[in-house]
């Protein structure tokens, strides 16, 4: 039984990381007032890019970079279309996600890949801690980024001028503009951050979790990551908590089926993260704390009179 719990925790952390990386990026983007449905596309692009990069160079490190770049490319298109060319950001998000799904599916069949998997790295002593030791300190090495990335994002958003400007843009773009903050530029930059993070999440998915790419392997993980940000009430701690909660739900579903406990039917377990995200949004999430200008448009050429 204890071993089972350990297994569940281990895979919770592993799967939670995917949500976490993507959600951290989306957190920054939403603080700037943007919502990116294309996060799903960025994640999938990251997964494909990661697998392709690792397979072509034979080095997972290059794979990770390739994944991050792939995520960034999608983010760049999203930012360009929605926050330079004024196309509705949701529609752009849908379109890009679909394009990425199509493109990766197509290329996956055209180009053969053997990416290999990122190595496991145990931190001595700490790994001996009962219950959580293995989950936290016997990860594939990319997983340890999860210890640093939240701190980095936190520093960026709350302790830099850039972060201050991003927050101001998300709260009151008109006032920010009056203060000389380039509103759309900050929004685009925040989307780039989302792309880099989601690309990392994707690379982690294909290189550390599964070790291979498969068609549409993100399967809504990007959407759950967005839900994690909403669920966390646009706070960093809430976002992290949400990510691991959904990761836990995902892991529980998988583990219970492996263990063979069929009190709860499999299909319901498979729905767990999505169901939990929905229930979370309905109950705990504090939707009133959202950035005041979330999902609003800003037209700098608008005449204020």
């Amino acid at each position: 039984m204890l071993g089972d719990i350990e297994t569940v925790l281990e895979s919770s952390v592993r799967l939670g990381h995917i949500f976490l990386f993507a959600a951290l990026g989306e957190y920054v983007a939403e603080r700037a007032g943007t919502i990116n449905i294309s996060l799903e596309g960025m994640l999938l692009a990251g997964a494909y890019g990661g697998a392709l990069g690792a397979s072509e160079t034979g080095s997972p490190v290059f794979g990770i970079f390739a994944g991050i770049i792939a995520g960034f490319l999608v983010a760049y298109l999203q930012a360009l279309l929605s926050h330079r060319l004024n196309i509705d950001q949701f529609v752009v998000g849908i379109a890009l996600t679909v394009l990425v799904i199509g493109l990766t599916t197509f290329l996956f069949l055209e180009i053969k890949m053997i990416p290999g998997r990122i190595h496991e790295f145990e931190i001595p002593l700490l790994v001996e801690i009962p219950l959580i030791g293995k989950a936290l300190f016997a990860q594939r090495w990319l997983g340890y980024v999860a210890f640093f990335l939240p701190v980095l994002i936190w520093r960026m958003v709350n302790h830099t001028r850039w972060g201050l400007e991003v927050r101001s843009v998300g709260e009151d773009p008109a006032a920010a503009n009056v203060n000389g903050i380039p509103v759309l530029k900050r929004r685009r930059q925040s989307i780039y951050v989302a792309g880099l993070c989601a690309g990392l999440a994707g690379a982690y998915l294909s290189l550390a979790v599964t070790g291979a790419f498969s068609q549409n392997m993100s399967a809504g993980k990007g959407v759950v990551a967005i839900a994690a940000v909403l669920f966390g009430g646009w706070t960093l701690v809430g976002t992290i908590f949400g990510s691991f909660l959904f990761g836990f739900a995902d892991a529980l579903g998988l583990s219970l089926q492996i263990i063979g406990l069929d009190i709860i039917p499999g299909p319901i377990l498979d729905s767990m993260p999505y169901l939990l995200a929905l229930i979370g949004l309905l109950t705990i999430a504090n939707l009133s704390r959202k950035p005041a200008a979330l999902a609003s448009k800003f037209d700098p050429s608008g005449d204020s009179s």
Binding site: L164, S168, E171, D172, A175, A176, N179, G180, I181, A292
Partner: peptide
């Protein structure tokens, strides 16, 4: 031009 969600010092050095 100050933003409600920010603190006083943040508002002052914005920009």
């Amino acid at each position: 031009s100050v933003i409600e969600a920010l603190s006083v010092w943040e508002s002052v050095c914005l920009g």
